[in-house]
Amino acid sequence: MGYHMSLSISLTINGLKREIALDDPRVTLLDLLRERLHLTGTKKGCDRGQCGACTVLVDGRRINSCLALAASLDGAEITTIEGLADGEDLHPVQAAFIAHDGFQCGYCTPGQIMSAVGLISEGNAGDDPERIRELMSGNICRCGAYQGITEAVLEAQKDLAERNRRDAA
């Protein structure tokens, strides 16, 4: 039951199952993605769960990847910003961020977008901008693109709902 030096874990990342040998139990999911798997779309802003730049989906839920030990997530499904678009077709949240200028420097953006995707699937905000603002408050944007972010989430949510209706019909 104890794991010492070499630790083997299995993660499904953006639909691809990967067996990963960890030489160090200290590696966080964020550092695993960035420094070992070179999936650098996920960003490190604070490394302490205080900014949201590292947000990814783990088993469909948005979390801060900087505060998750990779070893502990053995078997999980991870979705990062790299796994969101369908080829060259942007995910509706990505498209809405561009349309509403929901970013400036772009550094917090992957985290904002993954957080927005998580928020929409959680389904607790409705179309209330105040709820969206509250539920996006775990993602700090120092450039101050919040208004565009809120508008983008509202639009993408509507867009996704329509797609789902169409698909169901």
Binding site: G49, R62, I63, A68, S115, L119, L135, N139
Partner: peptide, 9 residues
Amino acid sequence: GASAQLRNA
């Protein structure tokens, strides 16, 4: 408390 991401974890 905290943020949606932290509450999820």
